[in-house]
Each structure stands twice: as structure tokens, then as C-alpha cells.
Write a protein that binds this DNA or RNA. Structure first.
Length: 204
DNA sequence: CTCACGATTAGA
DNA sequence: CTAATCGTGAGA
């Protein structure tokens, strides 16, 4: 459908410089791009269809709100371009890309992918009978086998990287973020982005 | 040390 | 609607 006319060989890897930009910029511009994960004997590829930005210091939904700095979120206080994963509910892994500078602890949360390559392997990791493959933040991480091993790893390496989709032939919907009822001030900011009418966007 | 809880999901 | 399930972080 979408991946078919995309030339993976010609596509360029997103470099570190891209991730030094503001989280809003990265979250929006990463839509339509491809997340590539190299496994031992195969590749897993997914198109990023939904993201959220977490703005750090001034964002009370963010783990680093008002400079909170703990063992878990320490990685946010690094330059952009590395991975922040954490365990949620003792069950699932959430995947973020650190953006901006050391003093601006922002992140981009990847909420959903459209499966492109390695679909059989994704299904195997998710387990039989699971209807949803990659249309949720902790669904796609399970399909890709994302866990604590990825904490602090570069998102522009040989093992895991993003391929830029140059022609963005879709509309972006901007809306409020999901699952942040604990926030007050920032709760309803339009910091969630997704590809309009894409069927792999997470559902309520 | 204790303890409430979460950037979610699956299933009744 | 609720259970699952445990590392984390705030507080005593």
C-alpha cells in the first residue's frame, strides 16, 4: 500500500542533527518516516504514523517536568538522538527518542507504526491470536522486541535507525495527548500528531 | 523502608 | 468495566 513505492535503498537515514531540533518539530516531521530495526537474520520495518511530543521543563505531562531528574529519566538530559525506554504498568515498554539539547530534556513518544516488513516476525513476537500488531505504543514495541536493552542507544546507528520519507503525501492531525490525566496545565495541548485516516493509528 | 501508581492492553 | 504486574519515586 504505502511502502510499495518507497525506495529503501535511496532513502536517507535521519542523522543526529535532526534530533537536536525541538520535540514538536521532530514529532511532526518524523511522521511518514520508516523505523528500521536490524535483527540477526532479518529486518523489521514500520512506518511511523503517530507520535507525541513531551516538552520537558514546562510540560507537566513530561517525566522531566520542572527539572525532575531521576535514575529513570536521566537519559533525557543528554543531547538528542538517543533512545529513552521505560517500563509502564510493570508490563510494557514505552519508546521515546530524546530530542533537543542537554539542558532541554525533551522527548518524542512513538505511539504507532504501520507494519511494512518482517510482519511474520512481528506476529510471532506479539503472540498468536493478537489482533492488533503495531497500532499502539506498547503493541509495536512488543512486535519489535523493544526493551531496556535499547535505553541510551543511538537512533542513527546500524542496528536501529529512521529513514526519511521526503514526499509527505498526507495530512497531519494535531490533537491532545493520550493517557496523561495526571497532568493539569499541559493536559490539553495539541502535542499528539498522526497521519489522517491511517488505519494503524492507535484507537481508544 | 514503605507504598501508591503509571505516556497501556486484553479480555469479560 | 477491571485485572495484570513491578520498577520507580516520593515521603517517612
Amino acid at each position: 500500500m504505502v511502502g510499495t513505492n518507497f525506495n529503501f535503498k535511496k532513502a536517507k537515514k535521519r542523522k543526529k542533527s535532526f534530533f537536536l531540533k525541538d520535540a514538536k518539530y521532530v514529532a511532526k516531521n518524523i511522521l511518514g518516516d520508516f523505523l528500521v530495526l536490524k535483527k540477526r537474520k532479518h529486518f523489521l520495518v514500520g512506518r511511523i504514523v503517530e507520535s507525541e511530543s513531551y516538552l520537558g521543563l514546562g510540560d507537566d505531562a513530561s517525566h522531566s517536568f520542572s527539572g525532575r531528574r531521576t535514575a529513570r529519566n536521566e537519559i533525557l538530559y543528554h543531547q538528542g538522538g538517543i533512545i529513552y525506554v521505560y517500563l509502564i504498568y510493570g508490563l510494557y515498554w514505552c519508546f521515546n527518542i530524546v530530542t533537543s539539547s542537554k539542558t532541554n530534556p525533551q522527548g518524542v513518544f512513538i505511539r504507532a507504526l504501520e507494519p511494512i516488513e518482517g510482519i511474520d516476525q512481528m506476529k510471532r513476537r506479539r503472540g498468536k491470536g493478537k489482533k492488533n500488531l503495531t497500532n499502539g505504543p506498547c503493541r509495536w514495541t512488543e512486535a519489535f522486541g523493544i526493551d531496556k536493552k535499547f535505553l541510551g542507544k543511538k537512533i542513527y546507528s546500524d542496528k536501529i535507525y529512521i529513514l526519511q520519507k521526503k514526499k509527505k503525501n498526507f495530512d497531519i492531525v494535531e490533537t491532545n495527548r493520550v493517557g496523561i490525566d495526571y497532568a493539569t496545565e499541559s493536559k490539553d495541548l495539541p502535542l499528539r500528531y498522526y497521519i489522517k485516516e491511517n488505519r494503524f493509528v492507535s484507537k481508544k
